[in-house]
Simulated assay, not measured.
Amino acid sequence: GRVAPSHQAARQHKPRRPHSTKARKRKSQRVSDRRQPPLSKSPLQPLHLKIKRPSQAMKLIKRIPASSLHVSEPPPHLFGNEKNDGSNPRWTNKNWLKSRFHFSFAEYHNPKNSMYGVLRVMNDDLVQGERGFGAHPHRDMEIVTYIVNGALTHQDSMGTRETLGRGSVQFMTAGTGVMHSEHNLEADPLRFIQIWIVPRRRGLAPNYGGFDGTTGKWKEARSNSFAQIVGDSEKCASVTGSDLPPPVLINQDVSMHVSELEQGKEASFSLDSNRQAYLLCVEGSMEAQAGSQTEALEQHDAAEVRGNDATLSLNFKATSPSCHILLLEMAKTSGDGRKDF
Rank of each mutant, 00 (worst) to 15 (best):
L204V: 09
E234P: 00
S233W: 03
P38N: 15
P43H: 09
N315W: 04
L280C: 07
Q128D: 07
C236T: 01
M141F: 08
N81C: 11
K41Q: 05
K219V: 13
D243S: 13
A310E: 15
Q45K: 11
S313Y: 00
P189A: 09
L190Y: 02
I61L: 15
E82V: 12
E130L: 12
A9T: 07
F105V: 04
Q170C: 02
E130Q: 14
W96G: 03
E234T: 05
M115W: 08
A151H: 13
E298M: 14
V31R: 11
I197A: 05
W96V: 11
P74C: 15
N207L: 10
L312D: 01
I61M: 14
H138F: 10
N93R: 09
F341Q: 01
D140F: 02
V118L: 10
L279V: 13
F79A: 10
S313V: 03
Q128C: 14
K317N: 11
F269R: 09
P321G: 14
R191G: 01
V121D: 10
A205H: 08
S99H: 01
D212F: 13
Q263M: 11
L271D: 00
R24P: 01
E329Y: 01
R63K: 15
Q29M: 03
I193F: 02
V258C: 10
S6Q: 14
P75Q: 15
L78H: 10
S292T: 00
L279Y: 15
R275A: 15
R191C: 01
L327M: 14
G210S: 05
G167Q: 13
Q263C: 11
K98H: 02
G159Q: 03
Y146N: 01
V258I: 12
